[in-house]
Computed example of a mutant assay.
Amino acid sequence: MSNLPQLRTLNNGVEIPELGLGLWQTPESKSANIVYEALKIGYRHFDSAQWYNNEKGVAKGIKRWLKEDPKNNKRKDVFFTSKIKDPDHGYEKTKQTIKNSLEQIKGISYIDLMLIHSPQSNKALRLGTWKALQEAVDEGVIKSIGVSNFAVPHIQEILKWDEMTIKPVINQVEINPWLTRKEIVNFCHKNGIEVEAYSPLTRGKKLNDPILVKIAKKYGKEPAQILIKWSIQKGFIVLPKTTHEERLLANIDVFDFTISDEDIAQMTHDDEYQVFCSWDPTTYRG
């Protein structure tokens, strides 16, 4: 395999690998091993969440890799993300739930990125959560903070808040060629906020799309690899997920080719809005 994910620099100067392993629905029992195996082949970015119930397993996999070769395997080279679950919005609840996450990941010292998982509460609670996250950054237990599934109005709440001392570094949303979310993407990029694409593989629903299959054949790649590369060339940080070790290698082996502008245009359906996940909190207006 040639090349590995490049690093992107966030608006706070922190670097993040442009491709990571999504860990939604990866059971605690499997997460430690899949993370360890991923680290061995070059992954350095792992996306967990309190809702996923696998923070502990992910940390266990990272710790195993760190202990295996302390001279070369460094904590600073691994990027670990978690997310605040919706019922725990608000200042006090968030302070407590951050402590809970830190307890789960004991041994890897800190969280690289903590996101608000979705906007599903209200403005006062969301801003209370942001206040607690800012304090956690000041304390050094979290390095960067951001949001997930936020629409433009939800992000504006934070940016316009007079108590904002730290700007979101990332908005993580479902994105693929049939769900391009141009309004959210343009707003984020205009404000120096990186966009992370989750479910880039459409949960497998579009892997047989005729245009995608044709383009994959042209480049000698699998349709999944073309979708991952589409996200990267569109400027997104991409989070393909798998619980199968044999898929880990294919999903990261996307740095030895470039899709032409013509083929990118052919794949991209800005006029469609196909949500493949079971939710779309960007439409939440509470």
Results as ranks from 00 to 15, higher is better:
2 S>L: 14
7 L>P: 00
9 T>K: 14
9 T>E: 15
16 I>H: 02
18 E>C: 13
30 K>S: 12
35 V>G: 04
36 Y>G: 00
42 G>S: 10
44 R>G: 00
46 F>R: 02
46 F>K: 05
46 F>Q: 02
50 Q>A: 15
57 G>K: 07
59 A>K: 01
59 A>Q: 01
62 I>F: 06
62 I>Y: 03
64 R>W: 12
65 W>P: 00
66 L>P: 03
72 N>C: 05
75 R>C: 09
77 D>F: 12
78 V>C: 10
79 F>E: 05
81 T>G: 07
82 S>H: 03
86 D>H: 06
92 E>H: 09
92 E>C: 02
92 E>F: 10
93 K>G: 07
95 K>E: 13
98 I>L: 09
101 S>H: 01
104 Q>V: 01
105 I>K: 07
106 K>H: 07
110 Y>T: 09
116 I>Q: 15
116 I>M: 15
120 Q>I: 15
123 K>S: 07
129 T>C: 06
129 T>Y: 05
132 A>S: 10
139 E>V: 01
142 I>E: 07
146 G>L: 14
147 V>F: 11
153 P>S: 14
157 E>Q: 11
158 I>M: 05
159 L>G: 03
160 K>I: 01
174 E>R: 02
178 W>P: 00
183 E>W: 06
185 V>A: 09
195 V>D: 08
196 E>K: 00
204 G>C: 11
205 K>I: 03
212 L>T: 04
219 Y>L: 12
223 P>F: 13
223 P>Y: 05
227 L>E: 09
229 K>I: 10
237 I>S: 03
239 L>E: 11
240 P>E: 13
241 K>F: 08
245 E>Y: 03
265 A>L: 10
266 Q>P: 00
267 M>G: 02
269 H>C: 01
270 D>I: 13
272 E>S: 10
278 S>C: 05
284 Y>M: 10
